[in-house]
Amino acid sequence: MEYLKSKGPCSAVEAGGFSLIEILAVLTIISLLLSMSVIGINRITDATDLTNNGDQIVNQLVQARQRAISDNAHVEVRIYPPPEGNRIKEWTLVLARQGLSETPAPLQQPLILSESIAISEDGDFSTLIAAREPQKDEGLMHSASGTEQKYHGFRFHPDGSTNLPVNPNGDTWHLTAASRRDIERNKGTLPDNFYTIRVDPFTGAVRSFRP
């Protein structure tokens, strides 16, 4: 009997078990920590996506300039906003070789940005998008529904310069990419984390700015 009293599994106090309140408290703390880490992980993933996508845009622009010089041709950079009505919102970048009389031909596979990343259409943050009239596609890209898409574009000349005029607002030619969540949440304000890419119309040089 003595043995059962001191070591028996029925005795909650002596076996060191938890009450329901304790278990609930622990579960609440764990769920709080988990939700906080999920927010943190989301931010880290968005930041990584932004860096990767920003770097890829820079590489594409540099490559477009290089191809224009090496091929002695005009290379057009076409930036397609996500097609209207599409569930997946992806921005696309296409490089097209543009002869004066030829029809444009894509130079390589288009660069499709991650769905979590968007290019701001704000007039201050993306002059290349907001201040350039969208142009009709001429059969290079079609949306899933088969309709021609509109794009914002500019050209690199064979000497490495661009066809971008002096910006009438006295600003530079640039675009700003950021997390889609941040852009949709803070319309008209600059997100904390962004990737701005500037194109020098004079030389075609590409420069990036991060916070």
């Binding site: 607002n169 006295g170 600003d171 530079t172 640039h174 701005t196 700015f209």
Partner: peptide
């Protein structure tokens, strides 16, 4: 030189 206006303001 060559910085977007919004960055200069920021």
């Amino acid at each position: 030189y060559g910085k977007p206006k919004f960055l200069i303001a920021r």
